[in-house]
Amino acid sequence: MDSNDLKIFRAVAAEGNITKAAQTLGYVQSNVTARVQHLETEFGVPLFYRQRGMVLTAEGEKLLPYAEQILHLFEEAAKVMNKSSEPSGRLAIGSTHLTYSINIPEIFSEYHKKYPEVNLSLITAKTEDLITRILNFQLDGAFVKASVLEEKNFISELVYKEKLVLIASPEINDLQQLYKLPFLLNSVGCVNREMLMRYFNSQGIRDLTYIEFNSLDASINGVISGLGAAFVPEASIIRYEKAGLLRSFSVPEEYSLVYTYFIRNKNGVVTSAFSEFVRMIKESNDVNFIREDKI
């Protein structure tokens, strides 16, 4: 077994398909098939079910995190041995769908123009999925949202505080009217939704109607069109409220303050590419972090 076998195994597991994995890796399909079969022979167990694609067996599931760690160590060794201080190589960043206050597309664009040698990628997912990817060394860093974040295996490089507010159309004059509306919320697991549920419970509010909107812009536009109410970052609706398109309502801080953390695995190597990305975030005019930890 060598690192290339594990790289192929990881790609097939991610793509769920030999052909797609071969295309991703730039290999001949027959070579990918042969290397997977070689691994299975070496371990003496099947690693994939071969029905309608390639699905990991129980043994394959056990191997995957070890493969991730081994490949990560190879990648980290290459980074350490690279004497150049100019950012280059891979930089994989994760983010939730609701990281509104940090203008990630703009930062990515600026970063790519300045450091075209960096292979930059952005993965969007739920906070729990991003944390898992950070712990498994699949991401170099990630923006995650939470009311409180406690984990011994990663470091929060930056923390940004954000206030959530209830919003409804301008015709809604008070909270009692607002509570009667359908609520446009993200799916279960979203910190905004969890905070709102806590607030409703504190008020003894029950029997609400929910409509799932996994997009901040869609939720705001839904409120403007009169579809219902929503619980969103205050910074995201200021211009709409000034234009008279909606009305906002505050709730107590214990139910409205959430935090965006930029985290990394504490055992990962801090590369020049990563350090420069953090610097750009800090210098963004649209972002006011409440803590900046040295890296």
Rank of each mutant, 00 (worst) to 15 (best):
L245V: 01
S202V: 05
T127I: 02
V12L: 08
P252F: 00
P252Y: 02
D207E: 14
L135E: 09
K7H: 00
N265A: 11
G89V: 11
A273D: 06
A21K: 01
G44Q: 10
Y199R: 10
D174Y: 06
I224E: 00
E86C: 10
L158Y: 00
K180G: 01
M1G: 10
N201G: 02
S156V: 08
E150P: 05
K126Y: 08
T132G: 03
S121K: 12
F231V: 09
P87L: 05
E194Q: 14
L196H: 03
L47P: 03
A243T: 02
H97G: 04
N285T: 14
F9G: 00
R206E: 10
G189Y: 05
I123C: 06
Q176S: 15
K83M: 10
I18W: 06
I8Q: 03
T19A: 11
S147E: 15
L175P: 03
Q29K: 13
T271V: 13
L158F: 05
F137Q: 07
G94W: 06
Q29E: 13
P182Y: 11
S250F: 05
A77N: 11
G44W: 09
V118K: 10
M1W: 00
L25D: 00
A125M: 12
L130D: 05
S30D: 07
E76L: 00
A21F: 04
L216D: 07
N17H: 11
I167D: 01
V223R: 02
V188K: 12
S169M: 04
P116D: 09
L139E: 03
S219R: 01
P87H: 02
Q203L: 13
R133K: 12
E150N: 06
V148P: 03
T99W: 08
S215Y: 07
R247N: 07
I238M: 12
G222I: 04
A142Q: 00
V28R: 11
G204M: 12
T127L: 04
